[in-house]
């Protein structure tokens, strides 16, 4: 879906494309960016629904959090948060690099961003293995795995998008004039980052 949302609009980048005639541009906003923003609104609402479940079970239902006898690895997750947040900065570095036509910088920045994201996902899966409870045990476990798993799914989608950008950057795409194809997945990656901070605060800290 995410890929669908932004990839569909890239015919403008490809000069060998002869689709419908160019439409009048009635807005300064670029269509692909706007599409991604709207898609992110709908993603926020998906998280909103999962947070509603969290709210009903923890606040309305008054369930103990975390469930009796369980411990949430706040420190490891905090370390993981730092990894994910730093990947936003490396992504920004890559974007700044291509604006100056620095291809090495773009490739380096994208590769590091991708690896940081993959590390986050790896640590998250590792945490599932060692956390000591399962979603089947109690509703708290369901919500914990539900929210972190939903976020993990979004990290995966984001990583797939980043992978496309990495491949394309090594194949010589993008330039200082035309780098929309990496800006738009970048917006999504920043969203995934910010969403994790919300999930981390609500699930682990509060």
């Amino acid at each position: 879906m995410a890929a669908a949302a932004h990839l569909g609009s890239h015919e403008h980048e490809d000069h060998h494309h002869h689709g419908p005639p160019e439409a009048n541009r009635s807005s300064r906003v670029d269509p692909a960016t706007l599409g991604m923003m709207l898609f992110i609104i709908s993603e926020i609402m998906v998280f909103g629904a999962f947070f509603t479940a969290y709210f009903f079970i923890r606040v309305v239902g008054g369930a103990e959090w975390p469930a009796e006898g369980d411990h949430l690895p706040k420190l490891i997750a905090g370390f993981n948060t730092a990894i994910l947040v730093s990947s936003s900065f490396t992504l920004h570095y890559a974007q700044e690099a291509i604006r100056k036509d620095n291809r090495r910088g773009l490739q380096l920045g994208m590769l590091v961003t991708f690896l940081l994201g993959a590390t986050f996902l790896f640590i998250q899966i590792n945490e599932y293995v060692h956390v000591g409870f399962s979603p089947q045990d109690h509703a708290q476990g369901t919500i914990f795995y539900g929210l972190t798993g939903l976020h993990g799914a979004h990290v995966t989608i984001g990583l797939v998008l980043l992978l496309f950008v990495v491949i394309r950057s090594f194949r010589g795409h993008y330039s200082s004039q035309s780098h929309l194809g990496m800006e738009v997945p970048g917006i999504y990656w920043h969203f995934v980052d910010v969403m994790w901070i919300v999930v981390y605060l609500t699930v682990y800290i509060i």
Binding site: I57, D137, H138, A139, G141, T142, G146
Partner: peptide, 10 residues
Amino acid sequence: NFFRPERDGD
């Protein structure tokens, strides 16, 4: 356990 009240679901 989203909807299992016996396990704190709602």
